Amino acid sequence: MYDAQVRAAAVAAMARGESLSSISKRFGMNRATLRNWHARPAPTSDPTGCPRCSNGHLPEGPYAHLLGLYLGDGCLSKHRREVYALRIACDDSYPRLIDEAADAATAVHPNRPAHRIQAAGHTSVVSYWKHWPCLFPQHGPGPKHQRKIELHRWQQEIVAANPELFLRGLFNSDGCRVANWTTRTVTGHPKRYEYPRYMFSNESTDIMHLCQQALDLLDIPWRMSRPNTLSVARREAVSRLDAFIGPKS
């Protein structure tokens, strides 16, 4: 095996036009290795590295989704050797949501599997990594609604580029699509009308504000039906959310 510096120097020499024989003699590797390096450039990022404190890659779409899930039903807990567990609590009634949470966690941290731990009435999707606090700096003691929740600039940029996936994570955690009804008088008789709407509930005013901002980015109208509950009820707005959220399953 050759270290990254030797490989980089050999590849640079090939790029300058130096012969394979010359490079092989200078660095002590065979020409087949050099041809392989030329055909398959070394990755520019470390798959095991942290996207924030080293050169790891952060897939922004899955991260935006995972951030929404974390703000809704997620937490970090510290284990031995500075390893943290990211836990996303998922209702067992919605197996698709469990699969999506596991897929998002695996996409962001592909070096380790996402575990599914069964509990009473729910499944926790759990992923272990020393660097989860780097990706979720909102981590802190106590419930989220009892502390300030603000996104860092780099997180804001990711959400701004992927508002649909961020909202999908939020609504999959603390939201729902429900059927409401009302009555109207038609030719002197009451008539019942049903219509769908989306609801998002969260005790944190900061997280609620993040949901509102993401909806505003997409020009989707909303209103607050209660201090802790947001509603999207206009037909066109519901259709927009149906395109990237939809009913839970």
Score class of each variant (00 low, 15 high):
Phe27Trp: 13
Trp181Gln: 07
Lys130Gln: 08
Asn202Trp: 09
Gln138Asp: 07
Arg235Asn: 11
Glu60Trp: 00
Leu66Ile: 08
Ala32Asn: 06
Arg177Val: 04
Ala107Asn: 11
Tyr63Ser: 01
Lys130Ala: 05
His152Gln: 15
Leu218Phe: 13
Val238Arg: 02
Phe244Met: 08
Gln146Asp: 01
Leu151Trp: 15
Pro221His: 08
Pro221Lys: 10
Glu194Pro: 05
Arg234His: 15
Ile117His: 08
Lys191Pro: 00
Pro137His: 04
Leu34His: 06
Arg26Phe: 10
Glu100Arg: 15
Phe244Gly: 02
Ile245Tyr: 00
Pro110Leu: 07
Leu210Cys: 09
Gln138Lys: 02
Glu203Pro: 12
Ile117Cys: 05
Met29Lys: 08
Tyr84Ile: 11
Pro163Cys: 06
Glu18Thr: 06
Gly140Met: 06
Glu60Met: 00
Thr44Ile: 06
Gln155Arg: 15
Arg87Asn: 02
Ile158Asp: 01
Arg223Asn: 15
Arg226Glu: 15
Arg31Asp: 08
Arg197Lys: 13
Arg96Gln: 11
Arg87Met: 03
Ser239Phe: 05
Gly188Ser: 03
Ile220Ala: 10
Ser239Gln: 13
Thr183His: 04
Asp73Phe: 10
Ile149Ser: 03
Asn111Pro: 06
Ala179Trp: 06
Asn228Lys: 13
Ala101Phe: 07
Met29Asp: 00
Ala39Tyr: 03
His38Ile: 03
Arg7Trp: 08
Thr123Met: 02
Tyr198Phe: 04
Ala233Cys: 12
His38Val: 03
Thr182Pro: 02
Met208Tyr: 09
Arg177Pro: 03
Pro137Tyr: 04
Ala15Asp: 14
Asp92Tyr: 00
Glu60Asn: 00
Leu69Lys: 01
Arg116Tyr: 04
Gln138Met: 15
Gly175Glu: 05
Leu20Phe: 03
Met14Ser: 12
Gly72Trp: 08
Pro95Arg: 13
His115Arg: 09
Pro43Thr: 02
Glu164Val: 00
Arg116Ile: 05
Leu167Met: 09
Val125Glu: 14
Gln155Ile: 12
Gln138Pro: 01
Gln138Asn: 04
Val108Asp: 05
Cys90His: 07
Val6Cys: 06
Leu151Glu: 15
Ala4Met: 10
Glu82Tyr: 15
